[in-house]
Structures are given as C-alpha cells and as structure tokens.
C-alpha cells in the first residue's frame, strides 16, 4: 500500500466512528445506573462512554416492564415480530423470484408494459397508498391482526422482482431447456433449478426484507391496536411513552439494544453473501 492510498482510510475511519458512536453510547447508557444515565442524557454528569460498574440487571428489569403485564408484553411483541418477519421474508423470496422468473423467461403478450408498470409502483411513496390500503384491510376485517403486515408479501416486491428478473435473465436458456427435457414442470424448474442458482439474490432479499420488516414502525402502528398484537417496534415506542423520563433512560436503551440485536447479528452472518450478491446483481457476467 502506498502513502497516498493510506490517507483514504482517514475519512473512512472518521466516518465509521461517527456512525458507530451513537450505537456505542446506547450500549454504554444501557449498562449505567438510572442517575448517571439520566444525568449523562441532559449533559449534567459528563458523557458516559464506559460504565464504571456495568448494571447487567438493567436488561431483564427493562424487558420485564415492556407492555402492561410483566414479561408478557415483551415476549408477545418478540413473537409477533418474529412471525411477521420470518413469514414476510419467506413470502417475499418465493413471490418475487416467481414473478421475476415470469418476467425474465415467459413469453406473453404485454410483458414489457406490465414490467414497466410494476417498476413504476416503486416510484409511489408509501404515504400515498397508506389510506387506501387501510380502508381495504378494514373492509376485509383484518385490522388489529398480523394479516395486513404479512399478506402483501405474498404478492411480491417490485424492487426484488426487478433484481430477480435481471439475475435470471443472464442464466443461459439451455439450462432451462435441459431441465424441461429432464422432466421439470415450470414450477419444478423454478424450485429445483432457479432458486438454488439465485442464492445471492435470495440472500439480499432475505437480509433487506428482514431489516426493513423488523424495524418497520409505521405499518404495525397503523394496523395493530391491541397490546398483544404489537411488534417490538411498536412496543418499544409504547415503552418510551411510558418510561420516557430521565429516570428510565437506561431501561429505554436496554430495550433498544435488544430490539436491534437481530439485525446486527444477521448482517454479520450474511455479510459475505450480501456483498457478493450486490456485485453479482449489478454486473452481468
């Protein structure tokens, strides 16, 4: 490495520190006592960067207080988040790859205009469809259930359909023909040949969908009203409203750390696939 290229790392390191600092501060505060955390939040006790005496008990105490009933609120919210996220991830992968396969390989009248129309839906801000969708789900009687959060995933996601379509289009046609001769039906071809070959795109879809759905606050807030239906994001917000004062900052931070932990872990696990997949999706070859 030459001297000039070494300097490139200076802004990169500064940027990384700037991005990681709030995360670090959140973890540090979550392990503090109520007094020190409250004082640090308003700047009275100086900045807390390393707890002198880590209060690990903050975590069980904070989680137990999520929701109206001890422990039940947190466990319900965690279960709801897991159900919504897992089902949505699986459904998005299946539906988006199937539709992407159709756009890439099936010849049918209106394929081009339909694909353009589907891409155009990506331009719509979610705020535009919020009220019509709410009315639709209310009409179906789905409000205050997990269905409005789960069912749309079975109809594909325009961005991931686009990614699958681009990836599938570069797979040699002979492979599909060989599979047809070998006895695959169209669905068998998709399941046995295509999905395993699209693993990089599947990984991207899984990670992005997971992060988005796990952190999604707006949709659960709109559709879920009962405490026992809340996802973690909504429960965290209710917790903030309930313990928003300076005396419970350490609890709020502890719950926040637990809420974001799965996303961080997932990113570390899927990092290689993710970076690999982004490259493969972008460049034909």
């Amino acid at each position: 490495m030459n001297r000039a290229s070494r300097w490139v790392y200076v802004p990169l390191v500064l940027g990384a520190v700037a991005m990681l600092f709030p995360l670090w501060w959140m973890v540090a505060l979550s392990l503090e006592t109520a007094e020190r955390a409250g004082a640090a939040t308003v700047g009275a006790g100086g900045m807390v960067l390393w707890p002198d005496d880590a209060q690990w008990s903050n975590y069980p105490e904070a989680l137990a207080q999520v929701g109206s009933e001890r422990w039940t609120g947190f466990l319900d919210a965690m279960a709801n988040s897991i159900v919504v996220t897992v089902v949505t991830v699986v459904a998005t992968i299946l539906s988006s790859s199937l539709v992407g396969f159709g756009f890439a390989r099936m010849r049918f009248r209106g394929r081009g205009p339909l694909f353009t129309l589907m891409l155009a839906t990506m331009m719509l801000p979610p705020q535009v469809t919020m009220i019509p969708l709410f009315l639709l789900f209310r009409g179906l009687g789905w409000v205050d259930s997990l269905l409005p959060l789960i069912v749309p995933a079975f109809f594909g996601n325009a961005f991931f359909i686009f990614m699958f379509r681009q990836f599938i289009a570069q797979i040699p046609e002979a492979l599909f023909e060989a599979a047809r001769i070998d006895g695959c039906s169209v669905l068998g071809l998709w399941w046995r040949i295509l999905l395993p070959m699209c693993m990089p795109v599947v990984a991207i879809t899984a990670v992005f969908t997971f992060i988005f759905v796990w952190n999604d606050f707006m949709s659960p807030l709109i559709y879920l009203h009962s405490d026992d239906q809340a996802t973690l994001a909504v429960a965290l917000n209710a917790f903030r409203n309930q313990y928003g004062g300076l005396e419970a900052v350490h609890y709020l931070m502890a719950v926040s750390v637990v809420t974001m932990l799965p996303c961080i872990l997932l990113f570390f696990v899927a990092q290689k696939q993710l970076v690999d997949g982004l490259g493969k999706g972008a460049v034909k070859g």
């Binding site: 040699p172 002979a174 492979l175 023909e177 060989a178 599979a179 047809r180 001769i181 070998d182 006895g183 695959c184 039906s185 040949i193 395993p196 070959m197 693993m199």
Partner: peptide, 20 residues
C-alpha cells in the same frame, strides 16, 4: 407433447449442467 414426455435426451453446446 412436451419435451419431458417425448422420452428424448439432449446434449447442448454449452453443456447446460446444473451448477449448484
């Protein structure tokens, strides 16, 4: 008759082996 029911086998120019 669809290809799978014709009881034929085909060898392609670019092999068309399933890479996974």
């Amino acid at each position: 008759v669809p290809p799978r029911d014709r009881d034929i086998a085909m060898v392609f120019q670019n092999y068309a082996l399933y890479p996974h």
